Amino acid sequence: MAVPPSAPQPRASFHLRRHTPCPQCSWGMEEKAAASASCREPPGPPRAAAVAYFGISVDPDDILPGALRLIQELRPHWKPEQVRTKRFTDGITNKLVACYVEEDMQDCVLVRVYGERTELLVDRENEVRNFQLLRAHSCAPKLYCTFQNGLCYEYMQGVALEPEHIREPRLFRLIALEMAKIHTIHANGSLPKPILWHKMHNYFTLVKNEINPSLSADVPKVEVLERELAWLKEHLSQLESPVVFCHNDLLCKNIIYDSIKGHVRFIDYEYAGYNYQAFDIGNHFNEFADRVPLCHPGWSTVTQS
């Protein structure tokens, strides 16, 4: 088993083919070059048909006025006084409001306002391409438009899952099927590169100067973190996990279960892109496993002597 840089390296390793540092895998060469090019991600899906754009900016602290202006553009036949709204508060970085007229919400427009400064980490143009690509494969709702600081799309019928739902065999099988479907989306003959290292480098670049001094006793020095990242790339890149199209952020609330149609769909494609298949699977478990109590009913009790 591979070990961190601070520990002695084993003489042999059953899954690593190279035991000396690889100059091509050193941390920062490709990532720093990409960062200097406006922090754009590696090439993603091919550009799809143009999406309607409105030069409207929605105040994140007062969403409704801007949202209603967008609804006038998208649903001009709706009478303003009849438009109902519903806010969703589960999001971590973005703000979301639903606009509809009928009680059943069969025709419902979601207005999502980007979180402040999220463009430093999220490539919004690539997000739109990912949205359209997934829609073309029946894995995403309709994308109605983009605006200055957000986008509007179709409301997806169903309920967002909770950690306790994920453990149900009927549901985790549906999740596995949907993930497998997304993983089969091809890059039109090109050889995609995983976005993992680029994303990690961008994030590290943003936060390394923002580490709170009070955490200095718990957070390693920047130089140590950089060496660990280089070590991770050196060794994990050799595991030959297939590079496929991934969601990359499959937490419970990003999974919508439609009990009538008997399927699940994934939402929020900010971090979607080609990546290691093993990362998408592992990250899904990592997003919810620590949120279910160890004494959860139905779990086997493990005792240690």
Rank of each mutant, 00 (worst) to 15 (best):
A2W: 07
P10Q: 06
A12Y: 05
P21N: 14
C25T: 15
A35Y: 14
S38T: 05
P45S: 12
A49F: 03
A52Q: 04
L64Q: 04
L64Y: 03
G66S: 04
Q72V: 06
E81M: 03
Q82G: 04
K86L: 09
F88W: 04
G91S: 06
G91Y: 00
I92Y: 04
E103D: 15
D104P: 02
V109F: 15
R112Y: 00
V113G: 00
N126Y: 04
R129V: 01
L134K: 01
L134W: 00
L134A: 06
R135D: 02
H137D: 03
C139Q: 02
K142Q: 08
K142T: 11
C145Q: 12
Q148W: 05
G158H: 02
A160T: 14
E162Q: 13
R173K: 09
A176G: 14
K181Y: 08
H183L: 01
H186Y: 07
A187Y: 13
A187I: 05
L191R: 11
K193L: 15
S214A: 06
L215Q: 12
V219E: 06
K221M: 07
E226Q: 07
E234I: 13
S237T: 11
E270R: 02
E270T: 02
Y271V: 06
Y274S: 01
Q277Y: 15
F279V: 03
E287I: 02
